[in-house]
Structure formats: structure tokens, C-alpha cells
Simulated scan of single mutants.
Amino acid sequence: MRLRSVAIALCCGLGLTAGAWAQIKIGQTAGFSGPVAAGVKETTDGAKLYLNSVNAAGGINGQSIELISLDDKFEPPLAAENAKKLIEQGVLALFLNRGTPHSQAILPLLAEHKLALVAPSTGAMLLHKPVNPYVFNVRATYQREAERAIQHLVGMGVSRIALAQVDDSFGADAATGALKGLQVAKLQAVAHLVFPRVKPDLVPLMAQLAKADVQALLFIGSGDTVVEGIQALRAAGSNAQVATLSNNASAGFVKRLDKLGRGVIVSQVFPSERSLNTPMIREAHELAKAAGLAELTPSNLEGFAAAKVLVAGLRKAGKDLSRASLVRALDGLGKYDLGGLELQFSSTDHTGLDYADLAIIGPDGKFWR
């Protein structure tokens, strides 16, 4: 038995065909605990909706898809450690990881083992340009989202806009888009605050913004941090309009905000979860209903779309499924209709979708478009 396990591990490590194992193993490392846990659970649940439906219909060439998920607690070093463990276990690809610095930590492993990272749950520009041959994005970039949010605030007649960003690659990346939006509007940020990713002290920073009498704040950070920041901002007496990015487009984020959530703008990278005229949304609703899921969230849809792209690649790779054949299949996927949303991959473009919109949290705790 031990020799057989070693043989399978060797085959997987060499990227040989999937016949060596009973299931198609896909690996995921993400913060199932920690500050992004709510969003991670929702994206993963959305992915499982589609993957379970594929397995129920016979899988891929008779093989079921097994998603192996490890908790990295939203810590980049642990994300890299988990990814290495998953690769050693023989996963065919990595999938739906969470976080920009976390993705950076994984990138060297992709090149070393020549396997795909499909649908990283981050809009980091570094995953888009230059094109990484092993990274296949599904969602729009954070820079696109942040610029769109600034355009919206300016369109509302707001001119005194502040930025607050986490001090990691995610924060710097998104802030680049926001500053571009301000530049186009011929404005400068009233304040541009940077806070640490670990144990940020937001109370004095939010008091500073309240004293500056800002009209709007674009808050770039993880869910729990943004919630704490909004609480501190309101406690400091500021009624500034708050906007944040799609990494916080989850029901868990809204629930944590409670009454303070009303009126907060959250950018979106997919059509409304209630847009049943979009075939992909309608399909997700039908599967959710069959699975007993009460409602869909934007994060559910991100996971659902990610799973559709993964499965499209697996099917295109054919019967001789391997790490290499999956990379080739995704690279040559061309135009792929997710269901009212068209994605396109080629050897020179792994961007995926460029959809960016805005929603506001309504009094019912739902995202209004």
C-alpha cells in the first residue's frame, strides 16, 4: 500500500494523466478563518454548487471532481505552505485562493510544478500583466473597480474624497486605480491613509478623517477591518459616504455591519444576484434552490463562475487529463460564454472578465443596483 501511494505521488508530481487516481483533485487554500472567512465561505459554496451538479451528471469523463480546501487563516506564508502540500498530494490545479500577497506567495510554485491557478479570488493587476502562463483570472481587476468607484463618487458631486488602504500589495494595487480616477477628475485625495494588515489601529485614523470633514471615503481592506473602520468613523461623528471593493461583496460583511451597513457602496464584478434575465444567474438560482440554499450572494456568484471556467478547461483538456493538458486547454479556451457573460483566454490574455459595477447596501441588508 505504501509503495502504491508513493507511485501515485510520483505520477502526480510529474504531471501524468489523471487515470492514476479515482477523482480529479483540485486544491484550494484560502482564509476559512480570520478576517475574510465570510467571503471565502460564500465563494467556495458558490463553486461547490456548480461542481456538485457536474459530479451528479457523471463528472468529467466519468471522474468526479474533488475540491480539497485548506485554511490559510489569510496569512501569506501559510497560503504558500498549503499550496505546496496540495501540490504534493497530486492536485491537478490550484483554484479560488484568496488574497493578493497570498497569490504572490504561490506564484513560484506554479512555475516550479507547471500547474494552473484558476480563478484567484483577487483583482490584483500583477496577476494580469504581464501575462502569467499559469494564472487564469475570471474576475475584473481591483484597479478597474477602484477607478469606477471614484468616478461614481465624483458623479454624485463629491469632491472631498479620502482613501484608506491596507499596507500590502492589495492595498497598493487598488489605490493605484483610485488615484487614477482622481487624476482623471482633476482632484486630489483630501487624505490618503495607510494602515497595517495585522492589528490595525483604526480609531485615530478615522478620527483624523472626521476632523478633515471628508465627504466620502474609499476604504480598501479586508472585511473585518473595513467593518471596524466604519464603526470607528461613525463613532468619530463622520457621516461620510463609504465605498469599498468587491472583496467585501458578501452577506457576511453586510451582517457584521448591521445597521451601519445601510448606504455603504460596494463594487461588484458580476451582475446582480437577482438578475434572472442573465442565464448564468438563472442557472445558479436553479441549482441553489435544488440544494436548499435560501439565497445567492455576489460572492456565491464569483465562486460559481470560477467553477464554470475550471470545468470548461477540464472538458477541453480531453481524456488524457494532466496538469500540462489543463494549462494548454485553458490557454486555448478562446471565447467562452459563462451564460450571458463572455470570457476569453489566449496565450496573450488571461484577464477573464472586465465587468465592474456598483451596488449600495439597502435597508433590507441586500445589495441594491
Rank of each mutant, 00 (worst) to 15 (best):
P77Y: 09
L205C: 01
V154F: 03
Y50F: 15
S53A: 15
N247A: 05
H192D: 15
S159E: 13
I68G: 12
A240L: 12
V266G: 06
G123D: 07
P77E: 04
T29S: 15
Q241D: 07
G157T: 01
L233E: 07
P77W: 09
A210M: 05
S238I: 13
A22F: 03
A216E: 02
N61S: 14
A79H: 01
L16H: 04
L296F: 02
F74N: 13
K289Q: 14
L92Y: 06
G19V: 01
L163Y: 01
Y355G: 02
L353E: 10
S325R: 10
A57V: 09
R262N: 03
L78H: 00
L310A: 00
Q104T: 08
L209E: 09
Q23K: 09
Q28P: 00
F253E: 02
D357T: 11
A178V: 04
G39H: 05
A172D: 05
P77K: 09
T44A: 07
T348Q: 07
G339K: 04
D71K: 02
Q231A: 15
P363I: 09
G99P: 01
K199A: 15
G39M: 08
E112S: 14
A294E: 15
N82H: 15
T100W: 05
S222V: 11
A305M: 12
M156T: 00
Q151E: 13
N55Y: 10
L353Q: 08
A30F: 07
L321D: 11
R98G: 02
T297E: 14
L353H: 09
P108E: 10
Q268G: 07
P101T: 10
H102N: 11
E342S: 02
A324R: 05
S275W: 12
P279V: 13
V190E: 14
Q63T: 04
A207R: 12
D337P: 02
D167A: 15
V266A: 11
T43S: 06
V138I: 12
S159W: 03
V54R: 03
V327P: 01
F95T: 14
S5V: 08
A111Q: 06
G362T: 04
G123A: 07
T297K: 06
F270Y: 07
S169N: 10
K335S: 00
K366R: 15
E228F: 06
R256L: 09
G229H: 06
V311R: 02
T225S: 08
L310K: 00
R139H: 10
D337G: 04
L338N: 03
D258T: 10
L260W: 07
G62Q: 08
S33L: 05
G313T: 03
G90V: 08
R144C: 00
R4E: 11
A105T: 01
L51P: 03
V154R: 00
L16S: 04
K41L: 06
R4D: 13
Q344T: 08
N52M: 03
G90D: 10
L187P: 09
E42V: 00
A359V: 10
T348I: 13
A356M: 01
Q165A: 15
P101I: 10
D258N: 12
L109T: 11
M206P: 00
E283N: 14
F345C: 00
I265V: 15
L96K: 05
D201K: 06
K211I: 03
L51E: 01
Y355D: 06
G155P: 01
L353M: 15
A284D: 04
V54L: 03
L341W: 02
A164V: 14
H192L: 10
Q208P: 01
